[in-house]
Design a protein around this nucleic acid. Structure first.
Length: 569
RNA sequence: CGGGAAGUGGCUCAGUCUGGUAGAGCACAGCGUUCGGGACGCUGGGGUCGGAGGUUCAAAUCCUCUCUUCCCGACCA
């Protein structure tokens, strides 16, 4: 490609609306342009980068035995009624009606459609296993799109769905995908971790997320320093916790005055105890019903765990004024003793002895609260978030917390969808059985953003070679000089004939602009036809990532670069 | 949805408090000089100041409504 002919609008200025590095650089480098909140056009260079990712994904999915298909983006509401998700999915599902007043939605994912295909087209165990995938635009009406390509409403996703005869087969399909994902993200040149994850709105029993480590990540990961354990904090189970209360003999329950002490820290400070002696009582609407949730005063509720523990679909914390207006309870002085509503307690709370908790009366708390004696929760379980005081659930080792960007997610779905939609086949024993399913997603457009978050400097992007829209950029610093042009053209033709992706900067621009644009765009190898060419007839090769330069003759440049690129890939 | 900020040539912004008929830099077009890390000079094109309504002799500026975008939050009582 010749730069002079390419729609590649770069800019010195950082766009005002872009907060994170990947967003800034993608806009400055002319990769993307926003259409409206959470929706972007990929300009030619951006689309090239996107295609680098899709090429890798496609190759590895095909290698893993999956078959590419393409499903409609608009889906009939009926199918979602069948699966039960028309009610469950919530406002992220963009719904609308056609001229006949029939319900439709924009596909945020395609379990329903692909299950419909399976039940129509696959009747026998002999046809299984099958893994179908597509690379396509998804739409999710995100509550808050942000950070450019990181969290869009419309985005490019690879989604795959496996169908097996039984759970063992499904596990095998899952493992094949897990390996494929490892290969994909390794080939993309990303520093990533596969972590245990919650299965969320997709449903299912077992899942892993593939996380690119980057400070701007929206997820927090727990990683064990000693073993291979890694999990999303939403998921990380608390298997062991130390309780140092058990030494104390139980004391009597005493009501005390705590005027203005609404925060755990205040109460603890006032009574000269650690916050961990206090029972924190929080109110949530759980599927619209108010429920009290108890955790130790120094802990944090993990809403995803809470949701799973209760089998709920919607969890919303109650506001202070709601608590008063609807329940006539004084927020800040809530406690489980004599509490009028359902109470859910973190397992750890049950080990507390002589704790402090609100008395459900303004300005008053109880001291000497003993779970089991003074109150009995309706449900107990693991519902708090893991923190730095915890040990690895797998080996007891030290835990580290890191931020990550979710670029892939794989799930074992089981027969939830196939049961609901009556997607069955006839097994070798003659019985009709539901397909055992798995689903596997990759945020293709997000991979581009994640790669940039992880690979950039003050001058711009530093693309990993496999994702670079161009592998080489040739800077012709004498575009009006016939000799420069001939040399540049010769290199351009030569490199392209060897299959390299080359951008020839043939613009009539000053050298400074060309150098800066080349850096901004993050093209891994830069060839300069300039001063050294003038003096010695040779060209300069510079590696974007390392800054290492060397001088080569025109003849040797082609083979040398081809070699470099091929060995790096 | 709650809170905050902002909408002025393609981009980054000033002008708004204190009303008087719109500016800078970048980008773009032409000419000239320049040419290894985002040059300079001259000339030029381009804006119903997000939209609607109102106040006023007069509105980018004041008032009301509205749309859009960005940030924070939507778990710690």
């Amino acid at each position: 490609m010749r730069y002079s002919r390419m729609l590649l609008p770069t800019s010195k200025e950082t766009p005002a609306e872009a907060e994170v590095v990947s967003h800034q650089l993608l806009v400055r480098g002319g990769f993307i342009r926003k259409l409206t909140s959470g929706m972007y056009t990929f300009l030619p260079l951006g689309y090239m980068a996107l295609q680098k990712v899709t090429d890798i994904v496609r190759q590895e999915m095909n290698r893993a035995g999956a078959q590419e298909i393409l499903m409609p983006m608009v889906q009939p509401g009926d199918l979602w009624q069948e699966s039960g998700r028309w009610q469950k999915y919530g406002p992220e599902l963009l719904r609308f009606r056609d001229r006949h007043d029939r319900d439709y939605c924009l596909g945020p994912t395609h379990e329903e459609v692909v299950t419909d295909i399976a039940r129509r087209e696959m009747q026998s165990y002999r046809q299984l296993p099958v893994n179908l995938y597509q690379i396509q635009t998804k739409f999710r009406d995100e509550i808050r799109p942000r950070f450019g390509l990181m969290r869009c409403r419309e985005f490019v996703m690879k989604d795959a769905y496996s169908f097996d005869v039984d759970d063992a087969g499904a596990s095998q399909s899952y493992e094949i995908m897990r390996e494929a994902y490892h290969r994909i993200f390794t080939r993309c040149g990303l520093d990533f971790r596969a972590v245990e994850a919650d299965s969320g709105a997709i449903g299912g029993s077992f899942s892993h997320e593939f996380m690119v480590l980057a400070e701007t990540g929206e997820d927090t990961l727990v990683i064990c320093s000693s073993c291979s354990y890694a999990a999303n904090v939403e998921k990380a189970a608390i298997t062991a916790y130390s309780s140092d209360f058990s030494q104390e003999p139980p004391a009597d329950l005493v009501r005390i005055e705590t005027p203005g002490m609404k925060k755990v820290e205040k109460v603890a400070e006032f009574l000269k105890v650690q916050p961990r002696k206090v029972i924190k009582t929080l109110l949530y609407y759980i599927d619209k019903a108010p429920v009290a949730v108890l955790v130790r005063g120094d802990r944090v509720v993990q809403p995803v765990k809470l949701k799973n523990l209760l089998g709920a679909t919607d969890i919303t914390p109650m506001e202070e004024d709601q608590i008063w207006e609807q329940l006539r309870l004084p927020a800040g002085y809530l406690g489980p003793v004599g509490f009028p509503l359902q109470v859910v307690a973190d397992q750890e709370v049950m080990d507390m002895v002589n704790a402090i908790a609100g008395a459900n009366e303004k300005g008053h708390h109880y001291n000497g609260v003993n779970p089991g004696r003074d109150f009995q929760p309706d449900i107990t379980g693991d519902l708090r978030q893991i923190d730095t005081s915890d040990r690895c659930p797998s080996c007891g080792g030290d835990l580290k917390f890191k931020e990550g960007i979710e670029v892939g997610h794989i799930f074992k779905l089981g027969t939830g969808y196939s049961d609901a939609m009556h997607a069955t086949f006839q097994d070798s024993d003659g019985l009709e059985k539901s397909f055992v399913m798995g689903c596997y997603g990759i945020g293709v457009s997000r991979v581009v953003a994640a790669a940039i978050e992880q690979n950039h400097d003050s001058k711009g992007i530093i693309f990993p070679l496999p994702l670079a829209p161009f592998q080489v950029i040739i800077l012709n610093l004498g575009p009006k000089d016939e000799r420069y042009c001939q040399a540049s053209e010769r290199l351009y033709t030569d490199l392209r004939s060897h299959g390299l992706d080359v951008l020839l900067d043939d613009r009539d621009e000053r050298p400074g602009s060309k150098f800066n644009d080349a850096d901004l765009l993050g093209i891994p190898y830069r060839l300069t036809v300039g001063k050294i060419f003038e003096k010695e007839g040779r060209v300069e090769l510079r590696v974007r990532k390392t800054g290492v330069t060397e001088v080569l003759t025109l003849e040797e440049t082609g083979p040398y670069l081809v070699d470099l690129v091929q060995s790096a890939l």
